[in-house]
Write a protein that binds this DNA or RNA. Structure first.
Lengths: 229, 229
DNA sequence: GACATGTTACTGGTCGGACCAGTTCGCGGA
DNA sequence: TCCGCGAACTGGTCCGACCAGTAACATGTC
């Protein structure tokens, strides 16, 4: 319950409650203290507490019922994808199990995007992907640069699919990456990162070879697993 | 701006603004009227308006800055997957382009889940999937029943993967399905729906044949496209 | 004793008005 | 012309009151 003067009070309260819920200290079904009680505990106004509670409600972590108590919902049953950034690192420490799940989904994503991209890419799309692949192949590039370029490649791939739902999912994944960028740095070390996969994918997309593009990206995603600590 | 006494006032205001944003009448970058002004327009208290604005902020539709104006964000750049239920049917009418995107993602999802399920399924999982596939094959089942069973099969498949990120994504898709269930009913008509795909997938999962399971579910997803109006 | 009922003490929802705290922008002086 | 200061915005927090549902307990009836 430390103070971070940067954050708004409401966000501090929301963070505190969110951690307790995702950390399991407030189990599903449990009734939260009343708003008036929370206001006293956090030494804040009830309106401010309400604001915090509404943030939690908006992402499906609690259920507020007029007249009844505000209860913790089971986020594995009710919450949407947007809780992921908090789930990955509850209390600042990255959770290995969630990370594994993320890498699996990432592999599915990359390969599917490559497949769709091969079907829908325009010349401009192809050239952009090839340009990024070329930059990724630069032996002088530092890991941090590679990380940025790799993300750009991913974004370009998603944009090429012209599927806006994939774009929406990407935003959430992006939130995870920016919040925990150092955690993924190991993937981009010299021994692990191999930009040839990107070049293969770009080439396959140019040739409209959906299967080859998907295979290249899948190989890349699986090779990145070796960079995991 | 009609009144629905069931919904809370704050939710009415949020819905109204959400529709304007997603409908494009409030373009990205545009500044919303001040909270005091909105309170007057909606004949509500400023606290209530703030509550509505916070709901929009929580899903990435607006950006509130202390001292500055609250501005509309570009949801294709900033919003997460959770806006999907509203995007699919802006103003009550289902958007065909979004529906097409959804079907694409659905196909990816089903096939990937089947593939992972084949790798991770326990005996219990397999039996549950086979039981559902058997029920789906019942020639006397009505379309509405098939729709429910098909969803159960999907959920069981996702649960079998033991990947909780897939579960989170599923929740959002579920929201879309329950909100627009009639829209998807055509998929389950006698001429279109073919439960043999489910049986094939279940069998492949039992045999731990990931490729076959993925292929079966992909065929199913693609066959369902024929049911689209 | 079992059950319907009404009272009451909670819960969250809305209100209004006040003040604090940042941003923006234009007016005025150097 | 340019800089800087301040007024007039913006959102953020607080207070205290009251409205509106819920749930549980006490009561009365059969």
């Amino acid at each position: 319950m430390r103070e971070d003067p940067k954050k708004r009070v409401a966000e501090q309260i929301a963070s505190s409650l969110r951690e307790r819920i995702l950390g399991g200290r407030l189990p599903p079904g449990e009734a939260l203290p009343s708003e008036r009680e929370l206001a006293e505990q956090f030494e804040a106004n009830r309106s401010t507490v309400r604001e915090a509670l509404h943030r939690l409600e908006a992402v499906g972590l609690v259920e507020m019922r007029h007249g009844g108590a505000t209860r913790v919902r089971d986020f594995l049953v009710s919450a949407g994808l947007h809780v992921l950034p908090w789930l990955i690192a509850p209390g600042g420490r990255v959770d290995e199990a969630w990370l594994r799940d993320l890498h699996e989904v990432r592999a599915m994503f990359l390969s599917f995007c490559a497949e769709q991209a091969a079907r829908k890419a325009t010349i401009d799309d192809v050239e952009k992907l090839e340009a990024l692949a070329a930059q990724l192949a630069d032996p002088k590039a530092k890991p941090a640069q590679l990380q940025r370029l790799d993300w750009s490649f991913f974004e370009a791939l998603v944009a090429t699919t012209q599927n806006r739902i994939l774009t929406l999912i990407t935003h959430v994944v992006h939130d995870v990456y920016v919040q925990h960028a150092p955690r993924f740095a190991a993937i981009y070390e010299k021994d692990v990162f191999d930009a040839r996969h990107h070049a293969h994918a770009a080439l396959a997309i140019r040739r409209r070879d959906a299967a080859a593009a998907a295979a290249a990206m899948r190989r890349y995603a699986e090779s990145a697993l070796r960079g995991r600590p």
